[in-house]
Design a protein around this nucleic acid. Structure first.
Lengths: 352, 352
DNA sequence: GGCTTGTGAGAAAGCGGTTTCAGATGGATG
DNA sequence: CATCCATCTGAAACCGCTTTCTCACAAGCC
């Protein structure tokens, strides 16, 4: 009897409420938003009418009138990637604390639709958080040049005047290289992530810088899933590497599976290192040495930065969060340093 | 030079475009939406102006004028649960094919905010997909009675006149029980999911029905994460069970980890069965016997049903999708069937 | 007691689009 | 050549809400 659903959706408007309460629409608005003082008696009548009619303000009308949506949008490449939920939760928490809701969209790793999705987000959110490692620089520039609050997540683009928050992928890979070098490894392989990914190029940049540690690196094309790692791992044998670095933990786990199938013991015969430190306690077959991203902090900082951008308009400098090395069971000193001697004249580290 | 970002957001309106192109706003609208024929020359001028000014229609204004948002909303309890991405991808695909975008919200497993989130979604989406196993029936009824297109995902509520699409959890657990009975198991334990979860109660209902197979079941409180499974697994020993069923795969994997730590071999001494068949190829330590949900189909059907509800208004009968048994490495015949003889008086399995 | 001030409520003007409605223009027709 | 009709375009109304503006009324002041 209460709400006799008229047509599609809740078609009861603020004027209906006003009529029912015997006041004007303006008064209803004032009561609901608390923007001005109104006679308590009237307010009570309004509230009654609201519950009576089951009134809920129309978000579009509110957004239009107020000039803001009360919403921030987040675009992530792939929700199946266990990396994102952690940052999304933090983003949601911050947004909620500022009275905003967050809407998430997924590009399904397809850069061609990413641009459209971001534009959609811009048209219906006060600000957007963009996690796109793949989008081309020009596209990115077009988007950031739009004058709409936007913060880059997990990507720093030097030339671009866009605020950004990212984990220090370069530093993370340097930590890994340092760890491996210290263990005595000299030849390492890298199972590369997506071709055009910035996150991947940062890792590679670090691997190249790590030549200073005396490491020589072979890069093998791979991808970002455990299946990719499983498939690409077979190619590691031919490189003479004693340690394997990867784009992320999933790849590393896939690779470990394959190596074991091939009879290569990890870490005795091959050290394997992950990246990201996704939570797989009690689930994964291997306790990976990896580097961890403070995902909560990442999301929090990005959301706060976006909030500042929306309300005050100032954009801080790009933030880079340090990663931490997590040494676990998948790395060990190389067992056969002698392999180096057959290199064609490489140095012979008298390890031992 | 192109867009001199004036103030906050893209403040260029349809009238600005009209002015720039020397036509009225109406004409711009007609050109952009193709709702009526306009002089090609004018159309060209309009398109020029649009790109020139970087015009993007304001979503709120469009929504208000058109009376629809072009968006469907999905509420999931927890994005970190690997179950959902699969269905979300399918939902997105269907939505996109109907020209709608999808916005995802997460309740973080907190039923108390779920209600608000759904209302938010209703106020800004044409329809909503609700995956809430925990929400109370009364809350649900209030929401579905609102006359707003809504489809329940992974939950069937008998008395409620709400369209719904769900996997057949009851049937899934029956498959598991049949499998275990066939292997010769008689006593099984169940690591229960969240208390008030419908998905969990369906599993339990099946376990009770499985008494007909000659199974006796002990239910142990647990949860939905691998950590829960790890912690709760210790209690299995005291039940005399030769097989362990679980709320989901993560719990099962956590339990296996613990059992192995306790020196119990899986599946030789204890069979363990998962639920859901989340994709963990090459990642998990155990290849679980489990039941699989057609997550893609689930999302697809739910989205199609919602679409039908929005456009035509008719709501079909609740759909239940069958689950499939996946027999892998974590189940085997019980090693000590003799335990059965001591049914009432705690026998001593001569596990020598 | 008349006039200024303060207070609270209603009327009305947007917000930025879409869509109806009316009008202007051009071609076809008698 | 005048009339009619079909097309296309612009003006205006409207979507539902917020917010300014205006006004009525009551209280406070000289």
């Amino acid at each position: 009897m209460r709400n006799l659903r008229q047509g599609r959706g809740s078609r009861v408007t603020i004027s209906d409420v006003g009529a029912a309460a015997g006041v004007s629409a303006s008064t209803v608005s004032r009561v609901l938003n608390g923007t001005a003082k109104v006679d308590p008696a009237l307010a009570a009548r309004v509230h009654d009418a609201v519950t009576q009619l089951g009134y809920r303000p129309n978000a579009a009308a509110q957004g239009l009138a107020r000039g803001e949506w009360g919403t921030i949008g987040v675009l992530v490449p792939d929700l199946a990637n266990p990396y994102f939920p952690g940052v999304l939760k933090a983003v949601s928490a911050v947004a909620r604390s500022h009275g905003r809701r967050v809407m998430v969209m997924e590009s399904d790793d397809d850069p061609s639709i990413e641009h459209d999705l971001v534009e959609d987000l811009m048209r219906s959110c006060d600000g957007v958080l963009l996690a796109s490692s793949r989008m081309e620089r020009a596209d990115l520039a077009a988007l950031t040049g739009r004058g709409h609050p936007l913060v880059l997540l997990n990507r720093i683009v030097p030339g671009l005047a866009a605020p950004a928050v990212s984990a220090d992928f370069f530093g993370g890979m340097m930590l890994i290289c340092g760890h491996l070098a210290q263990l005595g490894h000299r030849r390492v392989a890298y199972l590369s992530g997506p071709e055009v990914s910035w996150a991947n190029s940062e890792r590679i940049r670090a691997l190249e810088a790590a030549k200073a540690f005396g490491l020589s690196v072979t890069i093998l094309p791979c991808g970002s899933t455990s299946q990719c790692g499983y498939e690409a791992a077979a190619g590691v044998a031919g490189t003479g590497a004693t340690a394997l670095t990867t784009y992320n933990d999933l790849v590393a786990l896939g690779a470990v599976t394959r190596m074991r199938e091939l009879g290569v013991r990890v870490p005795e015969e091959l050290s394997v290192v992950g990246f990201d430190d996704i939570a797989l306690d009690h689930v994964a077959h291997t306790s990976l040495t990896t580097v961890s991203v403070p995902r909560g902090q990442l999301g929090r900082q990005a959301a706060e930065m976006l909030e500042a951008l929306m309300t005050e308009g100032h954009d801080g400098a790009p933030v880079t969060l340090p990663m931490e090395l997590q040494v676990r069971d998948s790395t060990a000193p190389p067992r056969v340093p002698a392999v180096l001697t057959s290199e064609g004249g490489g140095g012979k580290p008298s390890s031992g």
